[in-house]
């Protein structure tokens, strides 16, 4: 996910301090992974350089750095373009797992065991996510669901592969 575009979009409703920006980001998107101050400032300076934000003045007072940033017209256009552009669907090849299954088959080991172990692991994560979902707020639930659906997709692939192991074994061994 693009941190710089996210910060830029957070600036759109109105000017903010760098510290504000970090807090807003953490609240909405961090999910345990808070943004480092350093990253906020380096991102902001890159955005400044590219003319997407500009400084809106400095407040004198307590804090070390009380610079306020505001978004430029070019910045608004950039956000808009980004939101409107589709994300590249990533053809997630189950690279490692696929390799493991093929290798198991080739070496005469139980490919089912490989898949079962993986299913267990997947389900364990899914169980964890489901539990977190139950305790979390709406945002947590959406995020967890996202992950759950992805994991479910993996598991679907596992099931399908398991169902086709015999056919696969023939192809691989021939």
């Amino acid at each position: 996910m693009s941190v710089s575009r996210t910060l830029l979009a957070l600036l759109e409703p109105g000017p903010r301090h760098g510290y504000d920006l970090k807090r807003a980001y953490d609240e909405q998107f961090a999910h345990g992974k808070q943004l480092a101050y350093g990253q906020v400032y380096s991102t902001l300076s890159r955005l400044l350089r590219n003319g997407l934000v500009e400084e809106a003045g400095v407040e004198h007072g307590a804090g070390p750095d009380r610079k306020r940033y505001t978004i430029t017209d070019a910045g608004v256009t950039d956000v808009e373009t980004w939101l409107r552009t589709a994300e590249n669907p990533e053809p997630y090849l189950q690279n490692t797992l696929y390799t493991k299954v093929v290798l198991a088959l080739l070496s005469g080991r139980s490919a089912h065991d490989v898949l079962d172990t993986q299913r267990s692991a997947h389900l364990a994560v899914m169980r964890d996510l489901t539990r977190r979902k139950a305790d979390g707020d709406l945002a947590d639930q959406l995020i967890c669901d996202h992950a759950l659906f992805h994991l479910e997709a993996d598991l679907r692939w596992l099931e399908l592969t398991a169902a086709r192991l015999d056919a696969l074994a023939e192809v691989v061994r021939s």
Partner: peptide, 24 residues
């Protein structure tokens, strides 16, 4: 269930395949 997301509500799972069960 055959839906993983439903199974995720469980404490533990077993898999039935061809009438045989793997209960770890």
């Amino acid at each position: 269930t055959h839906e993983p997301r439903v199974a995720a509500h469980s404490d533990r799972e077993i898999v039935v395949r061809d009438g045989r069960v793997k209960d770890l």
